[in-house]
Simulated assay, not measured.
Amino acid sequence: MSNEERILELLFAESGKDDDELSLRSGVKPRQQVNQICRRLEAKGLITRRLGPKGKILNYAVHSWETAAPLNQALQARAKIGLDQIEAGKRGLLQCEPVRTLFLVPCSASKSDGGLPHSTGPRLTDHLSEAVKTRLIQARQAVARRAYLNEELLRPALERYQGHFYQVAREKIREARGRGIHILIISGGYGALLPEEPIGNYEAAFSSNWWPKGLLSDVVQAYAAQHKILSVRAIVAASTTYQKAVASIDWAAAGIDDVVVVSPQVSGGGQ
């Protein structure tokens, strides 16, 4: 086995290591040789190199589970899955290419007040075709009154939602988004949105009867096509409108045949 293969194999097993750690773990010395190898692997698109929290460059295998590791705690909190099942998830349930996987989660009945009159931030509509974008905007306008939507003050969805799932997973989701993980929130007031999307306050769980038939499916398909999504992992409670919404999406039309839905037996959205 070459030194390059040894480094790559180690990163697939334990991603997020700096050059010094890789040198120590792999036995490849001096450390400068590891640095050169990692730069070559990055140039080939096999790994990425990013600045870590302690100021050192960390190496990540492109297809490694560790790219999506911040979602481990979020998944465990939502589905009450034990650590042994999380480990199994690495091999099965969540065995996927993280940066080309779309995670779907529900909104929360519990929300924070406040915000800013004008708030900038990414919006899901920026990732859609003009036709689908227009339909979603029109549908949101039609639902606004029924959902008691108040947009006088705006906050990012990730900060607006205050249910248990978001209290536990907020920072993990934020970290995952920073690493390029795709996450959409199924929302009673907005249909679907990005975690960073500025939203107002509203009082509504997702109801398929309020939204045009097939719209959610078209929105998710458009987003998936834009980002070349290969897999979907949805975390929604069983026997809820959120679970039914996910089930209604025409994944085959989006060219996606790897879909896993985690449905814990709890009520409501993200609570």
Results as ranks from 00 to 15, higher is better:
4 E>N: 07
4 E>S: 15
5 E>N: 12
7 I>L: 15
21 E>R: 15
24 L>T: 10
25 R>F: 14
27 G>T: 04
30 P>I: 05
31 R>L: 13
35 N>A: 10
45 G>C: 11
47 I>S: 08
52 G>C: 07
54 K>V: 11
57 I>C: 01
58 L>H: 06
64 S>I: 09
71 L>I: 08
72 N>W: 05
73 Q>P: 00
74 A>M: 12
76 Q>P: 01
77 A>D: 06
79 A>H: 05
89 G>A: 14
93 L>G: 01
95 Q>C: 11
97 E>R: 13
102 L>I: 07
109 A>W: 03
111 K>D: 04
117 P>S: 08
118 H>M: 10
119 S>M: 12
121 G>A: 08
123 R>S: 12
124 L>Q: 05
132 V>A: 11
137 I>V: 14
139 A>Q: 03
143 V>W: 12
143 V>Y: 10
146 R>F: 14
146 R>W: 14
147 A>P: 07
149 L>M: 12
156 P>S: 10
157 A>P: 01
160 R>Q: 06
164 H>W: 07
165 F>N: 01
168 V>W: 02
168 V>M: 11
172 K>R: 07
173 I>S: 04
175 E>H: 11
180 G>L: 10
184 L>W: 01
188 G>M: 05
195 P>S: 13
202 Y>H: 13
209 N>M: 09
209 N>V: 05
211 W>H: 08
215 L>W: 03
223 Y>E: 01
230 L>P: 00
233 R>Y: 02
235 I>R: 02
239 S>Q: 09
244 K>N: 05
245 A>E: 01
249 I>N: 03
255 G>R: 09
256 I>A: 08
256 I>Y: 09
258 D>E: 07
258 D>G: 03
259 V>T: 10
261 V>C: 13
270 G>I: 09
